[in-house]
């Protein structure tokens, strides 16, 4: 499996890109080139130099440091949102599959359809309009949007598993639906969940950037990639580096996570891999 992973180009590139940003976020806890809380107005909008490899923003803050600390915000929001989505979506999906066709199934799946029908940004705007803009509310908004994704995926996969012989055997042995779901169904959908989790993770980063861009995500002074883009907007002709670098950070992270998701799917599902070769 390890060798297969190493020969999978998308997985290697994706993993490398993702690790760079996770690494940058971790390093930022102990060291950044320049403190992002202190402003240095005299040195504003400087182009990249040795002292500031990616230049400075309109308040004279070091953009590399901002991106490193901003990675923390993006990753934290996206991870927690995926955890919320999985934590609620997977049990709902398992329950719906276990009681296929029942009222419970109907309620869960139609509820999911309802959430799914709303654009995620609209949900986020509704939540922040009621509770005020903050990173926490962004997490909740993105997390809610993740629930139906995981619920549907889990239910779909679990339904086919419920017809398998070993599940039948477990039922004959007298195991209840909860135990079967936990012992036989869940372990067999984990691969799928990991792949989907990676994709949702990258979507979470995009969603956080979008929310911060419109001012509904992390509030200043917490650095956020989306807000860095919003701040740079009117200065794009004066200091293009202020927009390019946070934009690149978002692009590369999302690209990396998507490649990684693709690679993992190839790895977990040998049939697709064979088809592709």
């Amino acid at each position: 499996m390890i060798r297969a992973a190493l020969t999978n180009r998308s997985l290697v590139i994706g993993l490398a890109l993702s690790l760079i940003f996770v690494g940058a976020a971790l390093v930022s806890f102990v060291w950044v080139p320049q403190d992002v809380a202190t402003l240095d107005i005299a040195n504003k909008m400087k182009t990249p130099s040795a002292a500031h490899p990616l230049g400075t923003d309109h308040f004279g803050r070091d953009i590399l440091s901002m991106i490193m600390v901003g990675a923390r915000t993006s990753i934290a929001v996206a991870v927690v949102a995926v955890v919320i989505g999985m934590g609620l979506g997977v049990p709902l999906g398992l329950a719906a599959a276990a009681r296929r066709g029942s009222l419970l199934d109907e309620v869960i799946m139609r509820g999911n359809d309802l959430v799914f029908a709303f654009p995620s940004l609209l949900i986020a705007i509704m939540i922040t309009a009621v509770f005020g803009p903050s990173a926490l509310n962004a997490i909740i908004a993105i997390g809610i949007f993740n629930i139906p994704v995981f619920a549907r995926l889990t239910r779909g996969a679990a339904l086919s598993l419920w017809t398998r012989d070993y599940v039948l055997a477990a039922r004959v042995a007298g195991k209840g639906a909860v135990r079967i779901s936990a012992e036989h169904i869940l372990p067999n959908v984990t691969n799928l969940l990991i792949v989907q989790g990676t994709i949702q993770f990258s979507l979470g980063i995009l969603a956080e950037a979008a929310l911060s861009y419109v001012g509904l995500g992390a509030q200043p002074p917490v650095p956020s990639w989306g807000r860095m883009l919003a701040d740079s907007q009117t200065m794009i002709s004066l200091a293009p580096h202020m927009a390019i670098f946070p934009g690149m950070a978002i692009l590369l992270t999302v690209l990396g996570l998507n490649l990684m998701g693709d690679g993992l799917r190839d790895l977990f599902d040998p049939r697709i891999r064979r088809d592709r070769r």
């Binding site: 809380a37 202190t38 402003l39 107005i41 309109h58 308040f59 200043p220 002074p221």
Partner: peptide, 9 residues
């Protein structure tokens, strides 16, 4: 908005 960030710092 910008003045606020500076004053906060």
């Amino acid at each position: 908005r910008r003045g606020g960030e500076i004053i906060a710092a």
